[in-house]
Design a protein around this nucleic acid. Sequence first.
DNA 1: TCTTTTTTCGTGCACGTGCACAGGTTTTTA
DNA 2: TAAAAACCTGTGCACGTGCACGAAAAAAGA
Lengths: 357, 357
Amino acid sequence: MEGKEDNSLGGVKEIARRANVSLGTVDRVINNRAGVAVKTRNRVNAIIEELNYQPNVLARRLALTSRGTLRVAVLLPDISEETEYWKAPLEGINKADLEIRQYGVQVEHYFFDQNVQSVFAEQVNRIMANAPDGVLITPTFEKESIALMKFCKKKKIPCVLMNSDIPDQHRLCYIGPELFDSGYLSGQLVHYCLKEGQKAMIVNIAREIENNVAILRKEDGFLAYFREKLSQDQLVHLNMTDTGYASVAARLTALLEAHQQIGIIYVTNSRVALVAQWLESIGRKDIVLIGYDYLDKNLDYLKRGVIDFLLCEKPQEQGYRGVMSLFQYLIFSTTVQEDYLIPIDIVTSANYRYYRN
Amino acid sequence: MEGKEDNSLGGVKEIARRANVSLGTVDRVINNRAGVAVKTRNRVNAIIEELNYQPNVLARRLALTSRGTLRVAVLLPDISEETEYWKAPLEGINKADLEIRQYGVQVEHYFFDQNVQSVFAEQVNRIMANAPDGVLITPTFEKESIALMKFCKKKKIPCVLMNSDIPDQHRLCYIGPELFDSGYLSGQLVHYCLKEGQKAMIVNIAREIENNVAILRKEDGFLAYFREKLSQDQLVHLNMTDTGYASVAARLTALLEAHQQIGIIYVTNSRVALVAQWLESIGRKDIVLIGYDYLDKNLDYLKRGVIDFLLCEKPQEQGYRGVMSLFQYLIFSTTVQEDYLIPIDIVTSANYRYYRN
DNA sequence: TCTTTTTTCGTGCACGTGCACAGGTTTTTA
DNA sequence: TAAAAACCTGTGCACGTGCACGAAAAAAGA
């Protein structure tokens, strides 16, 4: 039971005592600061090894409190009725903000309209001008995002990406889902639910489909599953850049007329509620509906059995972890930090009550 | 942008200055200690409210370091080849242990054999004799668990339950799944996958089925779904108290002979691997198989397409949160603490890579 | 050898909180 | 009215670490 020497006891003081030097010297060795003889440094390092010394993070941050606050810039889409999704990451970010504020880290918000690229560029410039200590962004527009990442690299500012990734640039980490497998999983669900002789439909609803990385990746994954396990002619495609309900309903009605065997609809984003509204209006609860995101509107349809499956990627946790990983890095100097691939969760009317967003 | 007054600045010192009292007095008010005039107390409390004061946890724990270490007793089943499941909670517990050790909290382990009630009782007695500062248990045997909970109540020791619950006793919180809905969700999955004219089968494999709260609750939920949405005669029951493979295979073979329309099998615990082994041996990958737990053995079958769905309840997180909630309570005196119902996750071959246990 | 520069090291304060102890004030008792 | 008791409040140290400042020692220059 007793076993090895307990590591937790003895801090800097014990090291100083054993090495027969002062606290200041030990401190210099630990923090790799100059001004200590090589011989002394080695001796102290040996004792640090021997004691398996782990600095007390509480005391460390407490001591640093006097040094002033660190600023973390957060860039994400603003929240409209249409893009309610982004409320969740923001909540996670705010939660983290509250937790780390007293440790001398504060979060600065920058918002942009997902439909206006110039605003995004403008906000990127503002961030660069303000030179924060850390950056968290959702890289909706690739060009400006890369510019910001290059800037961060030069200034040695840690940069975290969220929600979708730009892999080949220099960044601290990516926090978000593996979108291809998200689509692939949808294909699998469709396969399980598909009855004899039925067809499935994939629906993209977004103003800009060709530039939307998220939608494209999910579709890739979905199609990959169909190629592997099903037949292409069991699938009907539909792209809609007009996101108004009337337009959506009209297109869907026409398509259902043409393909009466459709038994399953897969919507590649949170606009699944539009389809649900339409399905309910025409009284076709029997059609299996799969979509995205744990939003109030979607949950309503889920509870009522109109939507059958919601795929969710913990947007709140994404925001929270994004900020916290910067916090970890800045405060505790945690150098090693892998990308964090968020689980792809399946939510139905039977388990939504326990889901943590 | 400036808006309201920033809450983070100013701690006890600022309160003392505004109330025109000393630090000691403020401290007494905050910690509800005696020896301060009612008038003064009210004045200080008002200022605390006004400043929205939040104590600095770093400093708080740092100050308490001198006070000595707290001991947390953990009681859970030991890990055999048959009960590999319990490795995960233990990992979570150990992870928490490492994190909180330097804050002066240490974890003491107590193990028992799930098949031997007397050992459980014995360990409960050992815990009571050692009088720890906190207790975390998996209440496999109800009678002894209640005895321990009563002891804790008398001694004011916080007691956390994990994995399954005993609701009506005095306890700090429960951390685990809502088992009824877990079974209900399985029913729903079966419904989605059931093809025309097929039957489903529910299989319980455990030495003691009638005393196993977890299995019974899941079965309740599953049957509830069938009553609501399907027909009872689409369901075949099977209970097996002999957990050896040969015996399982024999029973299953016989039953499949009798009910050839069986298209889906639901196993109510992690023994689903036994059924998978059998299915693979008879070459019936077409039968949909649903079971429990993110274990290596089960994952193998999942990847190969023998098992189709695994329901998982984050056992590692359960252990982690169990210890951490005690830590929170003991160190930060977080009085309000709800039960934590773990999400019921659906894992398939398409998303298992991203699952966090 | 003495002064100047550089290197190396020790000391003291700060961070925000908990707690023991002592000093002070009011109320009770003799 | 003085002494004793009860009550209230202020002061100082500790927790472990980071950093500034200055002192001591060593090295370089004259």
